[in-house]
Amino acid sequence: MAHWIEPHPTGIYVRPADAWIDPSQPQERALVTHGHADHARGGHGHVWATRETLAIMALRYGTASGTAVGYGEEIRLGGVTIRYVPAGHVLGSAQIILDHAGERVVVTGDYKRRPDPTCLPFEPVPCDIFVTEATFGLPVFHHPDTGSEMDRLLHALHANPDRCVLVGAYALGKAQRVICELRARGHHDPIYIHGALERMCALYADFGVDMGKLRGATGVPAKEMRGAIVLAPPSALNDRWSRRLPDPIAAMASGWMRVRQRARQRNVELPLVISDHADWDELTDTIREVAPSETWITHGREEALLHWCMTHQYRARALALVGREDEEDG
């Protein structure tokens, strides 16, 4: 007998609610975990998401229709009780908790367990079926302490007063988190940002995330940015956009930076291992903590996590979802 919740290549279908979770194709009813492009798409009929995620989707796709669901608030759709709880990934990110027929399913979307000044921390919810990501699902991925990575960034900045440090950071989440972490460590100089980050930073500010003094990097004379931190999307790191900067030190904030060749391929001089995803220990610890009777692995290096589950007496299966895992979203 088919289960009431069905994985498909294009998303997870919740049959009694006739709704899709993070569908990659336009659907009539969509439950969206967070605003990253591989989870939130335009063109759905009706969207249920947190207020923050709806605002992000409106900014990116111009979609207006949607029902805001507060963290912890319960809604009911076709006999399924649905709750959004914090996933700790980016502003507005949520795990979707579904209760139906005496069974609980948790769909994490993307998540992390490290503190992030821009969003609420991940809340573990014990469940029967745990649907988890596996972006960094290999035991080589261990994200170091965020503080030590920020110290390396500030050290490079102060050691090179005539240059700037150009940090490649994903436009939604990573960029704002890096800025807040810098502020928390007492760096209060203006931070220059690429045009592609401006609207998202403004949205974060609207939701009360204080990022201090931000300035557009476009049109600023190179001289003025000496000794400053500049943030840009990863695609701009080696692009002609960076020619305007004063001898930039190319940095990148991403979990992929743990592996040398990954950093070298991107011509990164200062790799910063800062990730918005769970690392290997966090993935496995979280499975132990929520103790599901079955684990579904959506995307990433699912093979290794699947193997771990099998060898630790957790039933598990890998779902082949399409269009997931944007390399830049590390």
Binding site: L138, P139, R258, V259, Q261, E303, A304, H307, W308
Partner: peptide, 24 residues
């Protein structure tokens, strides 16, 4: 020290033996 299957998967991904072991 590490599950050999996970080690092989890691090595496939990282490429270099010394780096794989250093990380694992």
């Amino acid at each position: 020290r590490v599950d050999p299957v996970l080690f092989e998967m890691s090595r496939d991904y990282v490429g270099d033996l010394a780096e794989t072991v250093a990380l694992l």
